[in-house]
Design a protein around this nucleic acid. Structure first.
Length: 84
DNA sequence: CCCTGATTCGC
DNA sequence: GCGAATCAGG
């Protein structure tokens, strides 16, 4: 996956985001392996979050607190992306 | 029922 | 800084 967002990537991201496209459409447009989470995360980092032209999910904001990694919250493969 | 963005944490 | 997970609402 692209850990670095290049200029064209950020441009298309911002363009589609402000265009009213959903994170999922943008993720598919970029392709690669970017998920809607990655797009949203980058969008928020850029400060696009909240500037969405559409409504719906943009109406809310405050999210619940994450239970952190106390005992075994995230027992996922944590970065088990098949290391060469 | 699925989808949407938003937030938080871990790496 | 990036990604993924979780939440809350329509």
């Amino acid at each position: 996956m692209n850990a670095h967002w290049d200029k064209p990537r950020m441009e298309v991201l911002t363009r589609l985001w402000l265009s009213g496209k959903t994170a999922r459409m943008i993720a598919e447009k970029l392709g690669g392996g970017v998920t809607r989470n990655a797009v949203i995360g980058k969008a928020h980092r850029l400060g696009l979050t909240g500037k969405h032209g559409s409504k719906s999910a943009a109406l809310k904001r405050a999210r619940a607190f994450r239970p952190k990694g106390s005992d075994q919250q995230r027992q996922r493969v944590s970065k088990t992306r098949a290391y060469s």
